[in-house]
Design a protein around this nucleic acid. Sequence first.
RNA 1: GGUCUCAUCGUCUAACGGUUAGGACACCAGGUUCUCAUCCUGGAAAUCCGGGUUCGAUUCCCGGUGAGAUCACCA
Length: 478
Amino acid sequence: MTIRTRFAPSPTGFVHVGAIRTALFSWLLAKKDKGVFILRIEDTDKVREVEGSIQQIEDSLRWLGIDWQEGIDVGGPSEPYLQSHRLDIYKEWANKLIASGRAYADPYTKEQLESFRNQAKANKSPFMYRDYRPESPPVWDGSQPLRFKSDPKPYRWTDAVMGELSTGYEAIDDFVLVKSDGYPTYNFCHIIDDKIMEVTHVLRSQEFIASTPKFLNLYEALQIERPILATLPYVMSIDGQKKLGKRDGAKDILEYKKEGYLPEAMVNFLATLGWNDGTEQEIFSVAELVEKFSLQRVQKSPARFDEKRLLWLNGQWIRRLSINDLSTRANDFWSESAKNSSEQLRQQILALVQDRLKTLSDLPTLTSYFFDEPTPDWQMVENDKQLGKLQPAEIVELLKQSLIALSESGFSAEDLQQTLNSLLDSTSQKPAVLFSIIRVSVSWSPFSPALNETLAVLGQNTVKARLNLAIETGSQKV
RNA sequence: GGUCUCAUCGUCUAACGGUUAGGACACCAGGUUCUCAUCCUGGAAAUCCGGGUUCGAUUCCCGGUGAGAUCACCA
């Protein structure tokens, strides 16, 4: 039997990076086995539902290349994949539990429940609903919550990641199966759906360990064989010691797309957050991950979301792109004037700045002077360690000589390097001085790619015009 | 408070019970005709504490400590 996994988010807002990692691991596990990855939407909490979430979930997964073979949108043998459309199924299973005496209507009001809780609190003992289990509950008419009649006992089970886990009977209580609004709870319906959808491996984050005994108890009552359980360690917040959650800085995964991160980098990063293949390899393609992933090598301890590492990986992946590919991906990030320029020019520039990009959104600031005329700022010259020592007159003289030499240059990158080298000879200047002054004069930017290549892409006319402007404004300083 | 989980450089991590405890990010220094970046070289940096078991413990066991999670008509 092949592996079948699922990602089952609730549509309560954007998908954050921690949740996506769970999806990614589930997907990798299924892909490795040429199995099936299911996307199911758990929309049983109508109060918290946020409109547009489902679209956002799909967009997030698609951006990373995580595809689903069954689920919303694509359908499949266990349709529908939206839990709110499966209420009849849950009701059927609920009735089975009632018939077998394992579920009963909760007769208490919320106020009564609250007072039970306070009582327990006053006694400094944990609140257990089962301590207040009604002796002769009313017939369930759907208006009361339906509760599970639990059979508390200690459990010991094997988790594919954490190994042997155990809990005492305190972990099991009479939890709600169906809410008074008619919707089932997660605790109940995920078990039914996983069974019907023949899910073989359930991967979820560590916070579910505490409720696993409840599930085990329910599996028994329903006579459902449980799938393999795998608990993933938390993704911790960037700065703190908390599990990463929306409240403390977990970002929408699509935020990273907007910020110019590559999906390859994000997948690489998330996959190696709590997993490694045991070698010293750091960069993994999706294909390699699919091939190498295994639950046995998933870490038990939580991992912090280190954005610096993500940034480094992004740079690594940007450098691995062909210029054509990079160009396609960069489309949304160019400045307006860059967008109006030719594709050819943009590609030439990309070739120069590829090594300098950490994210695609660095593009506009890194390349502005190629597309827009920069404003001379002599403060830059004065603040420069080398140039600051020179008199304005000397600088203007150097610029004039440079203008003459460059006017006669062939303007290929190679020609320009020769021109610049002979200019070093004729002016008896160090590169630190001569190259700096030319670079600043044509870019008015704190940094740029290699001078000869920058000049070549700018073109002879632009270079001459900018040098002239620099000479003009520089002369006023003399 | 009850229950549960985890513990190697600042961070992510590697190490059949035998290693000078390895790699990567970040940081620092040097190199690559100017800057920024890439790339290369080098540097500093860790086994939470205490007991066992063992010839030998980062590794196995126990106890602390620390951190985190969970105790909903949320998922």
